[in-house]
Write a protein that binds this DNA or RNA. Structure first.
Lengths: 258, 258
DNA sequence: CGGGTTCTTGACTAGTTTCAAGCAAAGTGG
DNA sequence: CCACTTTGCTTGAAACTAGTCAAGAACCCG
């Protein structure tokens, strides 16, 4: 039922910490919009907790009706759905600054699960406080809606990818998009970043089998496009990768951070 | 740039009408939550116009930065994205009561297009009034967010479908989901409904070629699952179709109607 | 060092696309 | 009202893409 069983081991208590929103190291990044002091004060009351999760643990499970939702403070998570026989589709990834679990908080029960890819720290918000937020801080309510819309846009892109792009285009798209998102939150260098997935994760993201994903990756490597070793992904030819990916211009507008 | 060129012909003026929100025939359907008098009064000011669109016209185009968004009052629309060489992915359909174009209103420019599948009537809202809504009617602001979350959930389902389901499962899923949605807004009988698509539309929804879609449909018909003639889709074996589709229980909770 | 997980590769099979052609139904214009 | 055109549906054959099976190599962790 609740996520506690999975993610809060006894030994986790000492891993707790609590960064005040006004001191949040994420908030100063240029990709996030500045909050005014009132908003920050509200956020600090709104943020109920901060928890640490082990790599591989399930944060929220399909069917849960959760009373909480989260912002990823550090680490990588992924959202996914499964069919009865175990086929899994990864819907999206969550990086630092991404809001997760809102769907479960707003609608009834979760219809997807969320797992931690790496050790993760999460800021915890209570579903009950959401109404308070909407009543007292329209600007933050607007931000929540904005973030929901951004999620929708990411899904639009992913659906186009899985529905229409060919194998190498799919990989190029996913890699370039994750690279850009990682870059925004200072988790990428100029042309290399830590992509903490297995090839099985990537396959389940692309809608391909593991074997086909592997063979396509190898082919792209031999074409001098990219190189992925030990979780480190290097973009060898950004020019041609972008061509393949047909990624939109990044919007310069800063986004909200809850 | 604006949608006017496409959709508002001169002869359309006389097709205008204006249904007051309190008299809206949709609002009384059990799938929509009741609004209180204050909310209704606000909605009537919020609704700027009501327009008629020809079948086949483009309502919003990728790249537009629109100042308006809409609720479908009657008819069918579809959202889609295209790649440079013309490959098209249909993301979702809009039926009576569905909010469309919110993404364009909230974020910068549209990154998808919307076309009318049938003649359509739309209630028009202005992007500028959205801030007013958030400030003065938290309950409606909550509704907007709720609707955005619902969109996200529909996309999650569609992504699972296109990424993981087999040909007949994909068709079963899309058909059963559209059937249920049509039923909710009184656009379906017990086991038959008007599905105003071509097979090309369905193919672009499923991520298959037209030919493969056609052959799969024929095979399903000969298996006694469904029958689609002249835009009329009949469910011949709801039992087995539901099995194939693995559709969730419909949530009984009424949804907002803006 | 050993055991598990992840990656890699080849051979074979199944699913899907492309090409091509014919047909049916629904406009269009003389 | 009827040829004519267009659009959508249907079908078969060939080519290609992706999946499955299988086995071994590489890597990681305790």
């Amino acid at each position: 039922m609740s996520f506690n069983k999975d993610i809060v081991g006894d030994e986790l208590a000492d891993r707790r910490a609590f960064v005040a929103c006004r001191d949040c190291p994420l908030r100063v990044l240029p990709c996030f919009r500045p909050f005014d002091p009132d908003e920050l004060a509200f956020m600090e009351r709104f943020k109920k907790d901060e928890i640490a999760i082990d790599a591989g643990a399930t944060i929220l499970r399909e069917g849960d009706s959760t009373r909480q939702f989260f912002t990823v403070f550090d680490g990588w998570v992924f959202r996914y759905k499964t069919l009865q026989d175990g086929r899994r589709q990864i819907l999206n990834y969550g990086l630092r600054g991404d809001l997760i679990g809102l769907q479960g908080a707003l609608l009834d029960a979760m219809q997807h699960s969320i797992d931690a890819l790496t050790p993760v720290r999460l800021c915890v918000f209570s579903r009950d406080a959401l109404w308070d937020l909407f009543t007292r801080f329209p600007s933050l309510a607007f931000d929540v809606t904005w973030l929901a819309s951004r999620q929708e846009r990411l899904l639009d892109d992913q659906l186009l990818t899985v529905g229409q792009r060919r194998a190498d285009e799919r990989i190029a798209f996913v890699v370039m998009q994750l690279f850009r998102r990682a870059q925004q939150v200072e988790r990428a260098e100029r042309d290399v970043f830590m992509l903490p997935l297995t090839q099985q994760h990537l396959a389940d993201t692309l809608g391909f089998s593991l074997v086909h994903t592997n063979k396509t990756l190898k082919r792209m490597e031999s074409r001098g496009l990219l190189r992925w070793r030990g979780r480190l992904l290097q973009l060898l030819d950004v020019e041609r990768l972008s061509e393949l990916a047909q990624l939109h211009e990044a919007s310069g507008t800063p986004r909200p951070l809850l």
